[in-house]
Amino acid sequence: MTSPSHVMSTTTVQPTALRVEEVTRTFRRKGRNVQALAPVSLSIPSGQFLTIVGPSGCGKSTLLQIMGGFDTPSTGTVTTPAGPVTGPSRDIGMVFQRATLFPWWTVEKNVAWALRCGGTGRREALQRSRELLDLVGLGGFETAYPNELSGGMQQRAALARTLSLEPSVLLMDEPFGALDAQTRELMQEELIRIRQAAGTTIVFVTHDIREAVFLGDRIVALSGSPGSIALDLAPDLPRPHTHEVMRTQEFLDAYETVWACIRDQASAREPGRSERAAEQDDQGESA
């Protein structure tokens, strides 16, 4: 189920961690069918860090929800080596846009609860919870309540909770979208570090092109609507890296390629699409 090695390799072919085949999604809105996703197919090798980037309302969040089993595709399938994805499971962990920590528990209890639900004993769950909080840089805040933490720290804790599931695939839905710019950059570097340590396959959705290019081994640009893959890029950036990489020519080239693609797609779409319509799309996606 899990890959034999977490060491990244560009030469050997990794087994597929998640396969998306001809997935479409149609919503019913105000009595009309609105297609959010055109047929999308993606094969994600084990250990890959895939970022999905696109403008608001392009269906990227919908695609992620379907990958995690939180939404059902209208047609098409999502499969893992364990079988088809029919609903949420511990094998595919999701980190949501807003940290959905339970405010009635301390941070360590939040993480321990996720472990307890998987059958881990009380004492061991608490022990493991503290280790994971240490990993995400929250050592010393174990007994804090979520509302006592900053947005970035809450997202770290939520990440620790999801990592506790030891998922074979980690899905992240604009997890840093609500953070300020500085915290965001720090979290991005942290995520790269944590990813090195945990070695999980990651699918990361964002509307921030810089973030997508910085984080992803592979960047998929979605165009809407309906969402379809406009670009599938694997730039050759040095790994692991810090924000220094943003000054390299390789980074700038990759950024320009993605930006050009999204700009072309945007200008091809009907002009004067109102903010309101885009917002509604977003809500439809996250619902």
């Binding site: 939180f70 595919i92 999701m94 959905t100 998987g118």
Partner: peptide, 10 residues
């Protein structure tokens, strides 16, 4: 989101 987390952790 709370309910989604609950289904995610099984």
């Amino acid at each position: 989101g709370y309910l989604k987390v609950a289904s995610n952790v099984g």
